[in-house]
Design a protein around this nucleic acid. Structure first.
Length: 253
DNA sequence: ACGTGCTCCTGTGTGC
DNA sequence: TGCACACAGGAGCACG
């Protein structure tokens, strides 16, 4: 969604200059080098891999990870900056591309190539691009709970906590099931539902209330009725993350 | 190779 | 209304 947004509003624009208002948001690059890397460069296109965004410039890539509270906003006039604007890119034509991030878990940097960036961080294949066979091969041998694997960006890139819960709910698989114990059919279902869930969310621009009936994300609250059956949702901790599921339709066996 | 707990940071919701 | 506290959608790290 953010990738499309940036591309729609900024593709072809030239970065006049950058204003790094909080250098601690920069990853492995100083403000000075960052400025030098982006100044005068055109934004040719925007590529996404998992949760990572790559703004393709003329000679390198500007990388963006939104963390938990990061957001990209394009200001077209003289609007006030958002409260936690960490980096502002001044574009030709008076537009400003703003990175806003309250908690500062996000990061912005410069990369020479996408492949190298992914390789250095050992990121797995993108959730929406990887084949079913690739997904099953990468996941199959692990004895870890399936939810931990879905959340592990080294295995699959792009699935966050909420989407992992939704994906398993749609698949009717208990989040604590050991992945190695899952049947071929269950793994195929999980791969399919992972795609369904991510596409569905993109379609409604992550406005969960607009998701179709039956989605956990519409009422992700402990005790809420299961959106697709009889149970009531319960909450557990798995790998330190809040995990919501229906104990009636997602069973451990 | 795995789970656990801690860390970074700030805003929001809850209970007293 | 004010305050203390728990918790939050990410991810890296040390540790056992």
């Amino acid at each position: 969604m953010v990738r499309r947004y940036i591309e729609a509003d900024c593709q072809g624009s030239t970065i006049i200059k950058a204003n790094v208002r909080d250098p601690s948001i920069l990853e492995q690059v100083s403000s000075r080098l960052f400025n030098r890397a982006v100044r005068g460069m055109k934004i040719n296109r925007v590529v996404r891999h998992g949760k990572q965004l790559f703004l393709e410039l003329d000679q390198n890539y500007l990388t963006i990870h939104l963390g938990m509270t990061g957001d990209v906003i394009v200001l077209k006039g003289r609007e006030r900056l958002p409260k936690h604007a960490r980096v502002v890119l001044h574009l030709d034509g008076g537009r400003r591309l703003v990175y806003d991030d309250a908690r500062k878990f996000g990061a912005i940097g410069i990369a020479g190539s996408i492949a190298r960036f992914i390789g250095e961080r050992k990121l797995g294949p993108d959730a929406l691009t990887m084949s079913k066979e690739d997904f099953i091969t990468r996941v199959r041998r692990s004895h870890r709970p399936i939810k931990s694997l879905l959340l592990d960006q080294h295995v699959v890139a792009g699935v966050g906590n909420l989407y992992a819960d939704e994906c398993l709910h749609q698949s009717r698989v208990h989040p604590q099931r050991a992945t190695s114990e899952l049947s071929q059919g269950e793994l195929e279902t999980i791969w399919l539902e992972m795609r369904h869930v991510l596409w569905a969310s993109i379609k409604v621009s992550t406005d969960f209330q607009k998701l179709p009936q039956g989605f956990l994300l519409r009422s992700r609250t402990e005790g809420a009725p299961c959106p697709r059956g009889d149970g009531a949702l319960i909450s557990i901790k798995l790998g330190g993350r809040t995990t919501m599921f229906c104990p009636v339709c997602q069973t451990l066996e």
